[in-house]
Computed example of a mutant assay.
Amino acid sequence: MDPLDKAVLASLYSSALDPSVPAYDRLKARLPLGQELYNGRVSHLVKMGLIENSDPSKLTFIGRDALKVVLVGGVFDLIHPGHIHTLKAAKAEGDVLVVVVARQLTARKIKKDRKIYHDESLRKELVASLNFVDLVLIGREGTLYDTVEYVKPNVIALGYDQAHSEKEIAENCKRRNLNVHVIRLSTPIPGSKSSKMKKELGDSIYGI
């Protein structure tokens, strides 16, 4: 498929999950694309059966199947080189990278007694500033699987040190009739961790 056509599909998919940014605006932020060219591509994809004719803001089942969506989740309190490497590796696994930032309550459970410097909105903004990330969402209330059911990714990519079990996630997804491939990403810089930064810098992190 033409890369621009795939980018149009990706923008429509992302805006369906987060309607606060229209698909054209989302795509224009990444590519120098005029409205006329965008509309022409949408019309072309409608004819191909990849976008709904009755509602050009929605993908057909065929259109959705044309995208490989990768989901990554985490707290992302302090973005560091380890995060960048992990997220880029996840993006390389598919066409669309969706990053789910943990809600404040969930983040506290994950980090336990460790301080969280930024609230969920700021953490979302931090991750969204990375131009290779297609969509950033705050995790849904409930369990991890409520978010997975909402996003319906093809791949869930776990960081090298995340506590989740690949097998357990795959089995729980299967119980919800979600066909998801779960992978574990490696890192060439295992010493790059938020917990280490916080331990060494403490509140002086704000002076950087």
Rank of each mutant, 00 (worst) to 15 (best):
S14K: 04
V151S: 02
Y150S: 11
A89N: 08
H181D: 15
P56F: 04
G207V: 00
E52N: 08
E52I: 01
L144H: 07
L122W: 05
A7Q: 06
K112V: 00
L67D: 04
A66F: 05
K174A: 06
K199H: 11
I110W: 06
L71A: 02
L135I: 09
N179H: 03
M1T: 08
V155M: 02
D5G: 05
L122F: 04
S121G: 12
G34E: 10
P3C: 09
A7L: 05
K196E: 08
E52P: 03
L130D: 08
R176V: 01
S192E: 15
G191I: 04
S186C: 11
A128S: 15
Y117M: 03
L50Y: 14
L105A: 09
G202M: 11
Y24R: 06
E93A: 04
L137W: 10
P19H: 10
D25W: 02
A163G: 09
D95F: 02
S11D: 01
L78K: 04
S54P: 11
R26Y: 04
K111S: 01
V98L: 05
I51Q: 10
F61W: 10
K167G: 07
N53W: 08
Q162H: 07
E36G: 05
T106D: 12
L126S: 09
I79H: 05
V46S: 12
E125N: 14
Y13E: 02
G40N: 15
D113K: 00
I51N: 13
Q35N: 12
A89G: 05
G49C: 12
I110C: 08
K124H: 14
A92C: 12
N131T: 13
V100E: 14
I116F: 00
V21P: 09
V8D: 04
S43N: 13
L137E: 11
Q162A: 10
A29K: 13
T86N: 12
V69L: 02
S15E: 00
V101A: 07
D134L: 07
S14A: 14
P22L: 12
V180N: 09
E168Q: 11
G74I: 07
L97Q: 01
V21E: 13
V69G: 02
E52K: 07
K115Y: 01
D55E: 11
N179A: 05
E166I: 02
E93N: 04
P190W: 00
L17Q: 01
A128M: 14
K111L: 01
I62Q: 15
H118M: 03
D77Y: 03
L71C: 02
I183S: 09
R41N: 11
K58C: 15
L59W: 10
L122H: 06
V96F: 01
S192F: 14
H164V: 10
L37S: 12
K68S: 07
K111P: 00
L105N: 06
E171H: 06
E125H: 14
